[in-house]
């Protein structure tokens, strides 16, 4: 009887939402814990390496003197359900993106997407952005913006913002050049 009860108690304890049976086996856990620590350190080092290579790639391929980055954000997206975007610089297609629901929601929740990273020589350029999407009635809608900009020898960041206009229940595109 005693044996059964003990066994039962162990089994029942195991059903606890947080398994406390670990605490009863400290010795057995110590080597596993060391391995877990090592694994964690390794994971962290791999992430660090990934970051270093990422930065290296960016520095090598997109030096600040020629770097141009284009970002997309949505605020709040009540009147326009973003489907895709096309971006042209001097009438040349440079970027296009087709959004999944999840990516669209990520933007609507406040995320900013880096849409394009490229190189441009110094000079004047014309940027054209065309956003395709659906309005609240499910009709296809396009929103576009033109923007003239100068590229000097500093990196240039341009944000394309889709902003709701409550006055006319439409969404407009605002182009913001980040001041670095």
């Amino acid at each position: 009887m005693k044996k059964i009860s003990l066994l039962l108690f162990m089994v029942l304890i195991n059903f606890s939402f947080f398994d406390i049976s670990y605490a009863q086996e400290p010795e057995k856990n110590s080597s596993a814990s060391n391995l877990a620590k090592e694994l964690e350190q390794l994971k962290s080092q791999v992430l660090q390496l990934n970051l270093e290579l990422f930065i290296l790639e960016e520095d090598l391929l997109f030096p600040a003197s020629t770097q141009v980055a284009i970002f997309v954000s949505v605020d709040i997206g009540r009147f326009f359900k973003l489907d895709s975007v096309e971006v042209k610089i001097n009438d040349q297609d440079v970027a296009g993106f087709l959004y999944t629901d999840r990516q669209r929601k990520s933007l609507e929740q406040g995320g900013i997407q880096k849409l394009y990273l490229g190189n441009l020589k110094m000079g004047s350029y014309q940027l054209t952005a065309i956003f395709n999407g659906l309005d609240n009635d499910g009709r296809n809608v396009k929103r576009a913006a033109n923007y003239q900009f100068e590229k000097d020898d500093e990196s240039l960041m341009i944000e394309l913002k889709l902003v709701d206009e409550t006055s006319n229940f439409r969404t407009k595109v605002i182009v913001e050049e980040w001041v670095l």
Partner: peptide, 21 residues
């Protein structure tokens, strides 16, 4: 408007874009 952009906020929101996915 030549006020400096809050780059920390912009970077934070770029992180959020990945996090939400």
């Amino acid at each position: 408007n030549l006020a400096k952009t809050d780059l920390a906020e912009k970077h934070y929101r770029q992180t959020l874009f990945y996090y939400f996915q």
